[in-house]
Amino acid sequence: MIEVRGLTKRYGKKTAVDNISFSIQGGEIVGFLGPNGAGKSTTMNMLTGYISSNVGTISIGGYDLLEFPKQAKQQIGYLPEVPPLYMDMTVREYLNFVYNLKGCKFPRQAHIADICQVVRISHVYHRMIKNLSKGYRQRVGLAQALINNPEILILDEPTVGLDPKEIVEIRNLIKRLGETRTIILSSHVLSEIQAVCERVIIINEGHIVTDALTEDLARSAAANSRYAVRVAAPEDQVVPVFSAIPGMLHVEYVGCMEPGTVDVMIEAEKDTDIRRALFEECAKRGWYILVITPVGVSLEDIFLQLVETPDLEGPARLEETSGMPEPSETTETEEQK
């Protein structure tokens, strides 16, 4: 459906996107993940023909974007980071304008009414866009992308700045739309990608760092079992003793949180229940296990490992993540463009 080969975009001396290639099959929901400024929006703008690449080719449904822009663009519905709305129009006027702009051939009233129903904006149909809330504006933006029933939807950070309820609604909507369409979704929120996408492309500083199925990525992350352990034992003995347990991969000294105890992070091989061996070892030496907590590795950790740069150290690193935490939604926008 989408073929991208050797795409490069430079803004002056800065290379925003550097020689990236990927292909997306029909019906896939692909997440485009990366920190702010990684080149996500730039890539999306190139995919939709808003800006041109310096090098590389993009083919949409078999049509080269440069040679057959009309045919290629007809297959794409695009919701940019900032929904492209005319504040002085009503929703009705705006959607009719987009209908004309895209040269849509479906029966006008029925087509627009259907879309309004899908994105649930029928009750604000006659209102001015400037009077709508951010969530509704986002929906109108999505409605705009859906006009002409494009096979490909490209959504750039569709949930930024929405409240938690709206976020869940928009995500569910995207999932529903993805049943019949190819969707590319960019986000810097990992849980979003995990909740919605089957495949994830992680991009950092203009390069693709990973391109894998979300499932595989999560599985590979959870391959080893990790535990946070607090044990009442002599400080200097814990690490060597634990490391000697068969099946143990890694023991990391964390610190002393309670007097007379030691906190360690242990990682054991997959399919080994290290807890029993750990208990026996401690019992043998008369050490007390006070806390033992399983620590899941989330997509968050993988992401940070992959895109880690010096300024991401420290507080940004999520050390103990059991299960999938809900990262705070930020309204930062990419500085690109």
Partner: peptide
């Protein structure tokens, strides 16, 4: 208002 993104990504020449 970034509405040029809508127009320039539409099939319109």
């Amino acid at each position: 208002h970034k509405t040029d993104q809508l127009i320039l990504t539409s099939p319109l020449g």
